[in-house]
Write a protein that binds this DNA or RNA. Sequence first.
DNA 1: TAATCATATAACTATATACTTATATAAAGC
DNA 2: GCTTTATATAAGTATATAGTTATATGATTA
Lengths: 115, 115
Amino acid sequence: MQKTTVEIEKASHVLKLLGDKTRLTIMAILKQRECCVCELLEVFDMSQPAISQHLRKLKDAGLVKEDRRGQWIYYSLNPRSELYDLIQDILQHIPDQTENIRKIEENTPALRCGC
Amino acid sequence: MQKTTVEIEKASHVLKLLGDKTRLTIMAILKQRECCVCELLEVFDMSQPAISQHLRKLKDAGLVKEDRRGQWIYYSLNPRSELYDLIQDILQHIPDQTENIRKIEENTPALRCGC
DNA sequence: TAATCATATAACTATATACTTATATAAAGC
DNA sequence: GCTTTATATAAGTATATAGTTATATGATTA
């Protein structure tokens, strides 16, 4: 066990980001599967800009990375973040997101993207 | 490794609490040493009610417990919290608080309490 | 090039949050 | 019982935050 230590400022900032139910769920989902915004929309009862704004904050903090493929932008956890170990230690305690992923794959907005 | 899973609601609530620099520092200090409010006042540039209000939130969430001894109320981490494992996994990444504890013991407001 | 789809940004709003000061409670010592 | 010390609570305020709707950007396809 490597116990990467993180400045208290940075740690509290990332904990605040994860201290929102929507963002924490997004992170837990992204741990299991990369997603685009339209896929996450299947999970949350919320507008598209709301999801985009949450992802923006996570991206600004370096917690997620984006990968554009055509019209779609796929989000995933950023393993190069200096906070990655902390994030993993936290997400380990969060319930499995298979049910939410099922919701995504049920309506498969991703089908439209042809991947 | 036991990986206690915590409901997403509870997890996000506790992460939000730890997502404040002052509260996160308090938790990191309490991990190393029980403290009363007047001791924590040595560390933070903040009013006494501000510290009390932070401790109140941590107590309401079950993260800390209090132990009154005479006029003083000593706060410490609550090992009986269902969130204890998560908390420990987080605090593991927070820098050592020995310097802040030195500040406390330098002015030793605790001396007055005769312990 | 126009229409469509995915996403981002802007502007706004309601609520939450972290402080402040003033005051209350509670224990200890004179 | 009065004063002091430690802590809590109340009330108020400024700022942060998470959502909304409207609009812009950017890629794809007809």
